[in-house]
């Protein structure tokens, strides 16, 4: 390792601390006006996989997905859905081409999902826990 590269380590470490929240987990969020108090991991999974079409208390649910190249998407697929990406793609091809359900909207990244939630009282999304603010309601934290 060269000396100049070595000097970058403190900077990189500081940056990692700042962005450490990226690895802190996922927050499953909805609009603050949504009456749903909380969700379990299995309930989130069933809604995202189109096995449940409403919130447990009965309200309509609209799902927001993140872009496949975001860290949150990869974390969501493995930790919440418990699948590999190929398995998920195969799952959605089966659901779509049998007419049983559609993949959630690809809304973008954490900031885009937060913005989208603002506009959808019946929305359900996931963001990095470090991106949570007062404009969203957290239904579940996935560490």
């Amino acid at each position: 390792m060269s000396r100049s590269t070595g000097m970058l380590w403190p900077v990189a470490l500081f940056g990692l601390l700042l962005t450490g929240s990226v690895h802190a987990g996922l927050a499953i969020i909805t609009h603050p006006d949504n009456p749903e108090p909380a969700l379990t991991l299995n309930q989130v999974k069933r809604i995202y996989l189109a096995k449940a079409r409403t919130f447990p208390q009965g309200g309509t649910v609209r799902r927001a997905d993140q872009a496949p190249d975001t860290p949150a998407y990869r974390e969501f697929v493995s930790k919440v859905l418990g699948l590999r990406e190929q398995q998920l793609n195969a799952y959605w091809s089966k659901m779509t081409f049998t007419g049983r359900g559609v993949r959630p909207d690809n809304v973008g990244d954490d900031a885009d999902v937060r913005q989208w939630i603002l506009q959808h009282r019946d929305g359900l999304g996931y963001i990095d826990t470090g991106q949570v603010n007062e404009q969203v309601k957290v239904l579940l934290i996935v560490p």
Binding site: T60, V102, R103, D105, L118, Q119
Partner: peptide
């Protein structure tokens, strides 16, 4: 994938208000 949304309360959306509008979703693959 292309999605079209026909929001019954499009005006409310335009105002940036949260709403519970029933949306008809069209998706093709």
């Amino acid at each position: 994938t292309i999605r079209y949304r026909l929001n019954a309360l499009g005006a409310a959306l335009a105002l940036g208000m949260a709403h519970n509008a029933q949306a008809i979703e069209f998706k093709w693959s």
